[in-house]
C-alpha cells in the first residue's frame, strides 16, 4: 500500500532529497517549507505519516507538533521529528508532545533515512494495533 507522507522541512535541497528518496520507496510525499502550509495541508488530506523538521523559521517544529496534536483530525497521525545532533532537549520535548521517533539529518544518507522511517513506522503501527487473531 502506498503511504501518504507529509514532509515539512525548510531547506530546499534536503526537502528535495528526502522527497525523491521517499517517492522511490513507494511513498507519496507532499513537501512544504514552513509550518503553516504544512498544517493546512494536514487538515485537507489524509496522511499516514508526518516528517517534521524541528528547526523551522517562524512557527517552529514543536509549535507545529502541538497544533497537530490538539486537532481531532490530525492528532492520531504518527509524527517523526527530523533534527540535528545536539538538540536533545528539544527532541525530549517533542516526545513528550507525542512524536513517535526522531532522525538526525547529518547521521544518515537519504536512503538510510527512508529505512529508518520505515522501521520506526512499522514498530509504531505494530504496537499501536496489536495483530488481530486469525479467524
Amino acid at each position: 500500500m502506498v503511504k501518504k507522507v507529509l514532509l515539512i522541512e525548510d531547506d530546499e535541497f534536503i526537502r528535495d532529497l528526502y522527497k525523491r528518496q521517499l517517492d522511490i520507496c513507494d511513498m507519496f510525499t507532499y513537501a512544504f517549507s514552513n509550518g503553516a502550509d504544512g498544517l493546512k495541508s494536514a487538515q485537507e488530506n489524509q496522511y499516514d505519516l508526518i516528517l517534521l523538521d524541528i528547526m523551522l523559521p517562524g512557527m517552529n517544529g514543536l509549535d507545529v507538533l502541538r497544533s497537530l496534536k490538539q486537532n481531532e483530525k490530525t492528532k492520531n497521525i504518527p509524527v517523526i521529528m527530523v533534527s540535528n545532533l545536539g538538540q536533545e532537549s528539544v527532541v525530549k520535548e517533542g516526545f513528550a508532545l507525542g512524536a513517535i521517533g526522531y532522525l538526525i539529518k547529518a547521521t544518515f544518507t537519504p536512503d538510510q533515512i527512508v529505512q529508518e522511517i520505515t522501521k520506526i513506522f512499522d514498530q509504531h503501527s505494530q504496537s499501536a494495533q496489536p495483530p488481530q487473531a486469525k479467524g
Binding site: 531547506d11 535541497f13 534536503i14 532529497l17 525523491r20 528518496q21 544518507t109 537519504p110 536512503d111
Partner: peptide
C-alpha cells in the same frame, strides 16, 4: 548535509 545527500544518491 545536502552535499553528502546528493553525493550518496
Amino acid at each position: 548535509t545536502s552535499l553528502r545527500g546528493y553525493l550518496s544518491v
